[in-house]
Computed example of a mutant assay.
Amino acid sequence: MMKNYTLFLALIICTLFSCSRSNTKFLKKLEDSVKFYSDQANKNKVKYSTFYLSSITDFEWDKFYIFDEYVTNEMINEITGLTWDGANVPGGNRRIVFIYKKKIVQYVDFEPYQFPVFFYTCGGTEQYEFSKQDDLFAVYYRCDKNGCIYVMVPERCAKSIMRLD
């Protein structure tokens, strides 16, 4: 009886506080990898280091998007062309949404103030969208008068992006 009550109470608390299914395990792997490879970038001639994003995922994906804070699930549906009833992107967060075979399979929310990683595309785009062809990412650490960030950009266009820094 007590076990059922505890389970019921946990369900109520989760509902009230909007428990997230955000993949925190992946986020930890991403943080560790970005920091490691950006440290390696400081030690080589090209000033960036590379890794395959798929090497730290334990799920299949063929595309992913980056969404900024306050993007609603309706906007995510409109941009991706898929139907998803997940939560809106919380204030102060960004969201990475992974898609496989036209289904959203994972997402992760992160706070750029705690983990300042920015993803850049190879061309001008309204939405940050990456396909599996861009699985190999260049990573480096960049500082300017506004602060320091980790940069992730598809390796095929890393040198072009770095020239803009």
Rank of each mutant, 00 (worst) to 15 (best):
E126M: 08
K102Q: 14
I99C: 04
E129D: 04
F137I: 06
K103H: 12
T125E: 14
G124N: 14
V108Q: 02
T121G: 12
I56L: 10
K101R: 14
I96A: 09
K102D: 15
N146C: 00
R95A: 10
V108I: 09
Y128V: 15
Q114W: 11
T125A: 15
F64N: 08
V89R: 02
W61P: 03
D109Y: 01
E60A: 14
N73H: 15
F98V: 02
I76F: 05
E69T: 11
F67V: 07
F119T: 06
D68M: 06
F64V: 09
E126K: 11
P112V: 06
R95D: 02
N146R: 12
Y120R: 13
F110D: 01
N73I: 01
N88D: 15
Y70K: 15
D134C: 01
T80R: 05
D144P: 02
E129H: 02
D58M: 08
Y107P: 03
V89F: 02
E78M: 10
T80S: 15
G86V: 01
G124A: 09
T80G: 05
V117N: 07
E126Q: 11
Y120G: 00
W61Y: 15
G81K: 09
Q106R: 13
L136K: 15
V108K: 01
E74P: 00
T57W: 06
Q133G: 03
E74R: 13
E78Q: 14
R94F: 06
G91V: 07
N93V: 00
K145V: 11
R95F: 00
E78G: 00
F98R: 04
Y113E: 13
C122D: 08
E74L: 13
I56A: 10
R95T: 02
T121R: 12
F115Y: 14
G91S: 11
G124C: 00
F59K: 07
I104C: 03
Y107N: 03
Y113N: 10
T83L: 08
I76W: 01
P112R: 04
D68N: 14
S54V: 06
F137Q: 13
Y65H: 12
T57G: 04
T125W: 00
K145E: 14
G92M: 06
G123A: 10
N73G: 01
K145R: 12
V105G: 03
T57I: 07
I79R: 10
E126R: 09
Q106F: 05
L136T: 06
V139L: 02
A138T: 06
N146A: 11
G91W: 02
Q106C: 00
Y100N: 14
F67E: 05
N88C: 02
F67K: 05
Q127V: 15
Q133H: 05
I56V: 13
G123V: 06
W61E: 03
P116M: 07
Y100W: 09
G86K: 03
E60K: 15
S54M: 06
D68T: 12
V97W: 00
G91T: 08
K103N: 13
E129T: 14
K101D: 14
Y113Q: 11
S54K: 12
T80K: 05
